[in-house]
Design a protein around this nucleic acid. Sequence first.
DNA 1: TAGGCCATCTGGTCCT
DNA 2: AGGACCAGATGGCCTA
Length: 275
Amino acid sequence: MKSFDCESSSEGDESTMHAISRGAVEPPQWLRSGGPNWGWQAAVSKTHGSSASASGSVHPATAALDQVGFPQFPSNAEENQTPGRRTPLSAVGLGGFYFQGSQPNPNIVSHGPPSDENNPDPGCSSQSNRSQESRLQNPQNPSSSKGKNRQGKTVRLNINARERRRMHDLNDALDELRSVIPYAHSPSVRKLSKIATLLLAKNYILMQANALEEMKRIIGYLQGTAGAVGAAIVAPPGFDLQGFPAAAKFLQQQSLLPPDNSRRGDGAGGGGTSA
DNA sequence: TAGGCCATCTGGTCCT
DNA sequence: AGGACCAGATGGCCTA
């Protein structure tokens, strides 16, 4: 169905999609240089690589997400979901998300400022507009309710514009989500589909939660070990927390590090965080 | 050409 | 009443 108010989707969205793909966001260092392998690279290569094999009728991205061995965590998110109406944004503190007119992420291609969509361009020609007009007019009583039809048409156009803007905001949020998900953001790589973005994001969150739990266990173990021998944990030579203030603070809070360890950039390691 | 993905329109429901 | 949200329908574009 053609757009009624001169905001045809095809051209604009196509350019948007290509622009987003070109807006390369390199994958994180840990992903590029053999960090913890949680299956992301496999997922990405399967999803977007040239070797992405079509798996039947399923989209390659989605199929790859299903095939990849992501850590499977018990997910009660869906189970706790009540059927029917979704949680409104205001309920999660995002009530003011719309109409802010800001683009926090410069990588995100904006659809432009809300182009006065509530006032559909009267000069916007055309066939699609005329077809809409004809569609919105009541064929039963064309003369008596002309003014009402016109008003109804305006209302309908306003509703369409709001819905369009809502979907644009949703897509912008998805773009922001894509920009922080570690996957190949190279120009030669196809943009993640919406469902793939959501599934990857979900697994990424679960992965991070798992890593955090593991880190806590390690710290707890180290803490117990240090207590057993009655000595403080000494950071090994070359170990520098200057680049990790949060970690340093956390370790200080856990009494695992002397207060000045986080400022040891000039110390044993000589400033390098690693080899 | 079929299937996947997407944007848009549209009518309904719910909330403020 | 107006707006947000949702889901179905429809048509276009792209890829295998």
